[in-house]
């Protein structure tokens, strides 16, 4: 007999076969699909996040756990009604105009998705207009921007100003990240938050929604 704890444990250990087996067993035993996701798969990723922040799990292990978790979700998903499907919130994510560095953004996406957020990744080198369009189209609670260079961080300022003139600023919380970013800078451009790494970004989103 499999338990939700088994599912969570398989995610933490990055065991693909085990997670599929436990999830299937739980489905067959009649467990609620959302329960399997929230209290098994996402719970496992929460543990991963804690270990990652503490420095005793590392990036490739986190990536493996996320992949294993996604495989578990795939098994459960067909059993969920659209009306039932719930996410912790919607996040629009992208790197700002002029910045093509996507490794950090992709890690953040993976951690957010694994924590139960619905992430709309609009990609790299995105001008302010695209962020505004994404707010209109996807109605996110959070707008997350990334920039790695001192020469591109100002595009974050430009983007916030643009969505303000478009009347969209009040609809979203804005969070930013990237190597040169500091809390001080975040405040100076009127962002609602800053996170120094992917796991902290998830914690920040949980606080803000």
């Amino acid at each position: 007999m499999s338990t939700l704890a088994d599912v969570a444990q398989s995610v933490v250990k990055g065991q693909m076969d085990k997670v599929k087996e436990h999830v299937q067993n739980l489905i067959d035993a009649g467990n609620a699909p959302l329960d399997i996701i929230n209290n098994g798969l996402i719970e496992g990723m929460n543990v991963v996040g804690v270990h990652f922040k503490a420095g005793d799990m590392f990036v490739p292990e986190v990536l493996k756990s996320a992949k294993v978790m996604a495989a578990g979700v795939e098994l459960v998903k067909p059993l969920i009604d659209d009306s039932e499907e719930q996410s912790k919130g919607v996040i629009v994510l992208g790197t700002v105009k002029g910045d093509l560095h996507d490794i950090g953004k992709n890690l953040v996406n993976m951690m957010m998705t694994s924590s139960g957020f619905k992430v709309i990744d609009i990609g790299i080198d995105m001008p302010p207009e695209k962020f505004a369009d994404a707010i209109r189209e996807h109605k996110p609670q959070i707008l997350a921007m990334s920039a790695l260079l001192t020469s591109t961080v100002y595009a974050m300022d430009d983007t916030i100003k643009y969505i303000t003139t478009e009347g969209l600023r009040d609809r979203v919380k804005v969070i930013i990240g990237g190597a040169p970013i500091t809390q001080e800078f975040a405040e100076s451009i009127g962002a609602d938050g800053f996170a120094p790494d992917a796991a902290s970004a998830v914690d920040l989103c949980k606080e803000l929604v």
């Binding site: 260079l149 001192t150 961080v153 100002y154 190597a179 040169p180 800078f185």
Partner: peptide, 8 residues
């Protein structure tokens, strides 16, 4: 001096 926004 790539972390100093505005003063690089």
């Amino acid at each position: 001096a790539g972390i100093f926004i505005g003063k690089e």
